[in-house]
Amino acid sequence: MAILVDEKTRVVIQGATGNQGRFHLAQMLAYGTRVAAGVSPGKGGQEVEGVPVYDTVEQAVLHHGVNASVIFVPAPFCKDAAFEAIDAGLGVVVIITEHIPVHDAMDIMAFARQRGTVVVGPNTFGVISPGKAKLGIMPAQAYAPGPVGIVARSGTLSYEIAAALTAAGLGQSTVVGLGGDRVAGLNFVEVLKRFEEDQATQAVVLVGEIGGTAEEEAAEYIKGMSKPAVAYVAGRSAPPGKRMGHAGAIIERGRGTFEGKVRALEAAGVRVATLPWEVAGLVEEVLSGGGPAGETGPETPLDGE
């Protein structure tokens, strides 16, 4: 099993004929993802990598029964594309596009909530269930099938951590990118709940960063979780008031600090890594039953080495 996407997921790529869309459609196909159709308004009738392209998502549903979408449409047109996917009744909509206006994002999330669609992103690397399906732009070689569920706000940092886990023989059930924007379709808690229910997932890794309160809310939820959790939080050295690339990665109103997040996570029994390459070791420990959840162990991440 896995969460959100698996080998049965039938995928439509919106923006399939653009540079990014073409390239990643091919990569997803090569990974074994069931990419059934592409959509590019005005390009209906074409093919990309042998995959038929339609003018509308509705046609892709009609002819191929697609139930998930990956959106590569440029930001100004993304709200329309996302609404089209949600309106067509797709279960999962992954929005790779970055720089979507935040008001568009709020509109998309409101509509998705009404229709019961799960939106992943925007500004995300996507979702991968290793060995089953890849809906996004992540480098496939960083992942292998296994028992660890990863949920991350950022892309490259999570690739780094996933690759280290893979190198250590610790594969993943599913890896979910929440996206770097302030308004995102999924939060940590919603993904953790799915991992908690997923039989294939035995431990979870949370890759967080400063800003917002999502990690603190995750900590609250983890207190009641049966599976062990490991975390890494980026932004320890970030000064308040500076937005570190991601729209949400900013310490404001004294909230969203590194210290506050680490404190909350540790209080919930999460093993928090001081350095990203320590995550794999901590996962190994929690999976082998060493270092019981609820205790921090000998390390004191707040004080450094």
């Binding site: 950022s154 050295s237 990665a249 450094g304």
Partner: peptide, 21 residues
């Protein structure tokens, strides 16, 4: 660096080893 998360982490690591980004 490439990516906001890894860039932030890189700054943290530099600081961890006693440097100043």
């Amino acid at each position: 660096a490439n990516g906001a998360g890894i860039t932030m982490a890189t700054l943290d690591i530099i600081q961890h080893y006693g440097g100043r980004p």
